[in-house]
Amino acid sequence: MTIPSFSRRKSKYTPRTLPDSQTGERVATSAMIASLDSEGREAISAPFGHALVDLAKTRDGIVGMSADLSKYTDLHVFAEAHPDRFYQMGMAEALLMSAAAGLAREGFVPFVTTYAVFASRRAYDFIAMAIAEENLPVKICCALPGLSTGYGPSHQATEDLAIMRGMPNLTVLDPCDAVEIDQATRVIADTPGPVYMRLLRGKVPNVLGEYGYRFELGKAKMIHDGTDVLFISSGFMTMRTLDAAKALAAEGVSCAVLHSPTIKPLDAETICAEASRGGRLVVTAENHSITGGLGEAVAGALMRAQVHVPFRQIALPDEFLDAGALPTLHDQYGITVDRITAQVKSWLDM
């Protein structure tokens, strides 16, 4: 590394600062603030790990596997409950996926965890050749999706959905909250073939519980209806669009929120039916690059169905993102409630 490039890299990873709410002075913040701004909602601890433990009580074939990241993907909960069914493969993602394929061939249902960047970038070919081509029931559940860490491009999986959508036989999920992670984990255990599921870890907000939501594989569901704007969202961006809908309602804008946790196979029928109804502005919102994710999947579905509506995307830019504190980065890249609200108002010429 040259001296100039080292200087640029050092500056790039300097901790960001935020204004202190009491003094107004800017203070340094951690790159790993583990908050998705849940707005005071109830949070549930390790929903994935606890759901897997519960499943394993009656499913002898379920095993857990990780690449030295069980603590950071909530798989440690399973490892503590079922140590004889947990495999720590070390920092070797290719080996992890190949071993999972071998266990699946012997009749097991492996739940494999790592970070989303490592599964989508580092282990892609092994997933494709060892798991997806053989249509094996390996469930790949990955933490730190999109912009859910401030550690920069090495850990920010901003293009994972685009990568994984292109793989044949692979189901791709982006659940919203603790409720959906719990439900989806149980559903995919019985789903034939491989699954890639984005994973929120630690204390995960309970967003959908108040709506009586039930996850169904391959189904988009209307969480809140409205007449002016139709948000189509996935992941924690459904939490953000629900909050943006409340903020916009206070200004006389009625917003619907259609949650689409299954990115592949996309529920094109529901999406096209809702987009066709009422002449609403259609806005996709995702914690992913504007390239190749939910937005472009929805746009393709609308185009093929010849549904012609005003269409906009809220997503991360097609670039390597900065490092820093999550609140700073989310505001910088336009995925906070305030930024979403302002963007929609500008599109409506308010």
Rank of each mutant, 00 (worst) to 15 (best):
Y124K: 13
Y124H: 15
Y124F: 15
D125M: 11
F126P: 05
F126C: 07
F126G: 06
I127R: 00
I127E: 10
I127Q: 11
I127P: 01
M129H: 15
A130C: 12
I131W: 05
E133T: 11
E133Y: 15
E133H: 14
E133V: 00
E133L: 06
E134T: 11
E134F: 10
N135C: 11
N135A: 12
L136N: 04
P137Y: 06
I140A: 01
C141P: 02
C141E: 05
C141D: 02
C142I: 10
C142H: 10
A143S: 15
P145W: 10
P145H: 09
P145D: 04
G146M: 09
L147H: 05
S148D: 05
S148G: 05
G150V: 07
Y151E: 13
Y151S: 14
Y151C: 05
Y151V: 00
P153N: 12
P153L: 08
H155L: 06
H155C: 08
H155E: 06
Q156M: 05
A157H: 02
A157M: 02
T158L: 04
E159H: 10
M164E: 12
M164L: 15
G166W: 08
G166P: 04
M167W: 01
M167D: 04
P168M: 12
N169D: 10
N169R: 14
N169Y: 12
L170C: 11
L170A: 08
T171R: 02
V172C: 01
D174Q: 09
D174H: 02
C176D: 09
D177Y: 00
D177E: 01
A178L: 01
A178I: 08
E180G: 02
I181R: 08
D182G: 04
D182R: 03
Q183N: 09
T185Q: 02
T185G: 00
R186W: 10
V187H: 06
V187I: 15
A189D: 15
D190N: 14
D190P: 01
T191V: 05
T191Q: 13
T191M: 06
P192T: 08
G193E: 10
P194S: 09
V195R: 04
V195P: 02
Y196N: 06
M197V: 07
L199T: 04
L199M: 09
